[in-house]
Design a binder for these strands. Structure first.
Lengths: 404, 404
DNA sequence: CCACTTATGTTCAATAATTTACATTATTGA
DNA sequence: TCAATAATGTAAATTATTGAACATAAGTGG
């Protein structure tokens, strides 16, 4: 039986997952790389890559890499071949976006948020707004590949649920995926915002630094880390919870968790705001604190410096335990720059063994309000283009058909 | 051109790596499992497995698994198809062994050790003794697959070198692999003993507990952890170094590292021995301490209990940071049983958030002097049978030819 | 003992992938 | 401009893998 070009293309496409995964992960960005990375023959790679190119999933960039002979052409996933939806729940607002595969924002919006509303209503509004964004993205960017939700609370990533009491009261153990997956018809991911910010820093600013720690110092304090290139979540997704490690002392302050002397109660935005208020400078959260620091209020600078030392104290423990090669400090308080950072550096160098600090870099994150959104996009992309799942993506795409 | 049975067998063997890896890792222990796990067709699996069986690399066990119909026969790597060499440098002696693929000891020996001798001479003696063991193992167990060396000091696993100052003075940055690899003609691995004990506990006693922490409380204090099923080493192999985390207090004792208030200086075997000596009970190391505890010396029991609380304090920090689902406490001091463990439990439950301790088990390791040796064996096996490297093993085996 | 169920092996035609050999292309440097 | 170099494409022959169909094996529960 003869086969026409289209069905030959489709059958090549069905086997092209490995190729697509390699291109998407940037493990192989040229045809020659693909040959060695995949172990397949040139004939096969040519054929499968041809199918991916024809389907519009992969494209040739204008870049080439010198090779000594004919330069090799750089390949990339076609950013406009599909899109993602992401949302980040903040203190008072929810930021939402449709993103292409770069990932870059196609379209975004903001809606108000109140904890009092409860998860069902909030998720309903999120679904509605994401639906609107999807509508607009679909015309230019084809299929929806995945949806990601960032939450300011511990999340059991495997189960997609908020775990433990948190600022999102009423959300504990609520089945978020069941509520939303149907509405949007794509794989759904829920993750803690700090882990997503960590992933963003790793993928976007420090690719290749496979053992790094991200500290978010804002109104609360949390951390995330990349272990051997993977977000490390621990048994229940609660890894990196450094805000409630205690240091005892005579004046140990009461924490909102009910214990005394937690890092948060000493160094988080709310704790500094509490101390500033007592000194006669009204402040409520990390933003207020940074405002006072930026207007050169000595008391605020002093307290931020002290907070840096407290964070440094706990960070030194983390360094001893996980031995990262990079620490990125982000969150609102990081806008205090060296005032915060110097205390962190001081304590780490003071308390850690030289071996652990020998090659350790400690840097500030660029202030970026949307890093959790981008992190969510990377999370989706990593999973959807992973070798194990890329087949599903191609099937989904094959059905939707190629885009012009 | 016709092909005889032998060459057909050999070509199947060359492609049988994936099958072998699945059987070795116990990811698939039956033919049916292999079909689904490999994704290959039954014809191919039958053929490749046949080659592995013919080569003597894999064998059928007498066990079967019920299935509702014909039971499926359990497959396993043939433990006697090849062997490993391992060595563990302790305080005063070096334990060495040839092991089969179970891993189980085929033959073992002990030689004296003195730091003063320096790495070159010590490694020379180790090579000679391992050579002797290899000679004996070779007759019954075919090819040597790998050699592992366990050291009581931080090791940069990737580079196979001791890093930083340690009890092994003179070993820092010494190129161990260059010194030994040639002499033995097999892949060579060097790793820290605590990480190997951790790996042993994971593989041997708690398979499936993919996020676990092992604490070694002996003359020194260290820890290792399994993150998502892998030994977590950090950037320089120094992860888990909890012995030199400091807790400040008025009476902070001086540590052998030169800082004050380290966990080691408060709770390690040498620190308890120091305190006991001051109280009039001569003791030098963890063994002496346990001796006094076992003879019901109240002072020793009190100090061990106190050490448990100190270890619990640092362990609670570790729990907050990495969120394990299991803590295994081993090392000489663990022979103190509940006396040590109760303090650890107490502090962890007191200082960690309920979320992190909700499903956390804290248990004692079985006392086992050879756990680092077994851990080294597992380390070699994991690597040699890994999908990426199993091809090399088969090549090596193909050249050596099948055993009867 | 028998029917039922699932595991396992085998044959053979169809399909997929590789190897080989040759051809073409896009650069660099003489 | 021309050789040198390595990337890339392709046809044909060879080899590997699959799927389907059939056969047999080894348990379970009547």
């Amino acid at each position: 039986m003869l086969k026409d070009a289209t069905s030959a293309d489709l059958s090549s496409l069905a086997n092209a997952g490995e190729i697509l995964s390699l291109v998407a992960s940037r493990a192989a960005t040229s045809r020659s790389d693909l040959l060695t990375a995949s172990g397949l023959s040139r004939v096969t790679v040519t054929q499968r890559l041809g199918a991916l190119l024809a389907a519009g999933l992969v494209r040739e960039t204008s870049r080439t890499l010198p090779s000594g002979g004919r330069p090799t052409r750089v390949l990339a996933v076609n950013e406009t071949a599909a899109f993602l939806l992401v949302a980040n729940i903040g203190e008072t607002h929810i930021h939402l976006a449709a993103m292409d595969l770069t990932p870059a924002v196609i379209r975004q919006s903001t809606i108000p948020f109140s904890v009092a509303e409860g998860p069902a209503a909030t998720l309903g509004r999120i679904a509605a707004e994401l639906g609107r964004l999807a509508q607009e993205a679909r015309s230019s960017h084809g299929v929806l590949l995945g949806v990601g939700l960032s939450l300011p609370t511990p999340v059991d990533f495997k189960r997609g649920r908020v775990v433990g009491p948190s600022v999102l009261s009423g959300w504990d153990e609520y089945d978020i995926i069941a509520r939303l997956q149907g509405a949007l018809g794509a794989p759904f991911y829920v993750e803690n915002d700090v882990n997503l910010m960590t992933l963003y820093e790793y993928r976007h600013n420090f690719p290749g630094v496979d053992d790094m720690l991200f500290i978010k110092a804002g109104t609360g304090i949390g951390s995330g880390f990349i272990a051997s290139g993977q977000v490390f979540r621990g048994a229940q997704g609660a890894a990196g919870d450094i805000g409630h490690i205690q240091f005892l002392s005579d004046d140990a302050p009461l924490c909102r968790c009910g214990k005394f002397g937690c890092v948060e109660a000493r160094a988080a935005g709310w704790a500094i705001a509490r101390d500033l208020s007592r000194l006669g400078f009204p402040a409520e959260n990390a933003r207020d604190v940074i405002g006072l620091v930026e207007s050169q209020t000595p008391e605020a600078i002093m307290l931020l410096r002290k907070a840096g030392r407290t964070i440094g104290e706990v960070a030194s423990d983390v360094v001893s335990i996980i031995n990262p090669s990079l620490i990125v400090v982000g969150g609102t308080l990081a806008r205090g720059g060296e005032i915060l950072l110097s205390g962190i550096r001081e304590l780490i160098y003071q308390r850690c063994l030289p071996l652990a600090t020998r090659d350790l870099r400690i840097v500030l994150a660029e202030p970026d309000a949307d890093s959790a959104l981008f992190g969510a996009a990377h999370l989706i992309l990593d999973d959807v283009f992973s070798p194990a799942k890329v087949g599903g993506l191609i099937a989904r795409f094959g059905i939707a058909g190629p885009r012009s």
